[in-house]
């Protein structure tokens, strides 16, 4: 027993190193778990405050006003478009909660990474504005990301520049379903996966969300096909597309809320657990 204790005290540096290193790697590997969620929840609020101050210092006054005008304008347009859709005779028999199923919360990116492998962005709207984890983030150009954690005034979103983030998508010309996922190479390009080789996909086809998972509504633009190759050996096409959202230019974003999401998810869980 004494010998064992002596062994541990003699090698205390080594054992401390192993324990600390193990803990660090455990933190890294457990992405998207409860521990990570709490880490982000505390971290996003503090990092968000710093970024907010920084952004305010950097931004000149006129630019700020311009942005706010644009943001208000966009929100107005989205609102009126939503009200116009039923009047145009499209599905006017649907109940109102379906017509106004999605709502948009305008906000601004106050911090983002693009140079990492797993990229994130911070938005200056949080749970007190109605943002919650699981909501989609879009810009006027297209899909931006998905909220993974929201504190009271900020939200942290996984960017589309993140290989862990799959977007249920389709090609608008043909309706072919696929899954969009970033491959870590170029911040302006991404990949469309799981489209069988025999299907017709052309350069110039536009890709949009299919609305299959309740993160994004159907038909939000994602990008435009720039290259189609027959993949090496496997049965899927290797499709590269240019992303519509430019992370280096746009910082005005909308968080998309789905009024029927809880209903949809509850139904799906009930059925899946019942079977």
């Amino acid at each position: 027993m004494n010998k064992l204790l002596l062994f541990f005290t003699r090698n205390r540096v080594l054992f401390s190193f192993l324990i600390l290193e193990f803990f660090s790697i455990w933190l890294v590997v457990n992405r998207n778990t409860y521990q990570q969620a709490t880490f982000f929840l505390v971290s996003v609020e503090w990092a968000g405050r710093i970024d907010n101050v920084k952004q305010n210092v950097l931004q000149t006054l006129s630019l700020k006003e311009q942005n706010e005008d644009l943001m208000a304008e966009n929100a107005r347009l989205k609102e009126s478009l939503r009200n116009l859709q039923p009047k145009m005779g499209l599905r006017s028999d649907l109940p109102p909660e379906l017509l106004t199923r999605y709502y948009y919360i305008p906000g601004k990116t106050i911090n983002q990474t693009t140079e990492l492998m797993n990229n994130y962005l911070t938005i200056n709207k949080g749970s007190s504005d109605g943002v919650s984890a699981g909501m989609g983030v879009i810009s006027s150009a297209g899909v931006v990301g998905k909220v993974i954690s929201a504190s009271s005034h900020f939200a942290l979103a996984q960017s589309i520049l993140n290989p862990n983030f799959f977007i249920a998508s389709k090609i608008s010309r043909t309706g072919i379903q696929g899954s969009a996922k970033w491959d870590g190479q170029n911040i302006y390009k991404s990949k469309l996966l799981y489209i069988p080789r025999n299907l017709d996909v052309r350069v110039g086809d536009s890709i949009m969300t299919s609305g299959f998972n309740s993160v994004f509504p159907e038909g939000v633009p994602i990008g435009i096909v720039s290259d189609v190759q027959s993949g090496e050996g496997d049965s899927f096409l290797d499709i590269t597309f240019i992303l519509f959202h430019d992370f280096k230019k746009t910082d005005l974003v909308y968080t998309v809320g789905d009024r029927l999401r809880i209903e949809k998810d509850t139904l799906e869980i009930q059925v899946l657990e019942g079977s």
Binding site: L27, W46, A47, I50
Partner: peptide
């Protein structure tokens, strides 16, 4: 904590 990269820099 500030770079939001749990565990990596630690």
């Amino acid at each position: 904590f500030f770079l939001q990269t749990p565990g990596i820099h630690a």
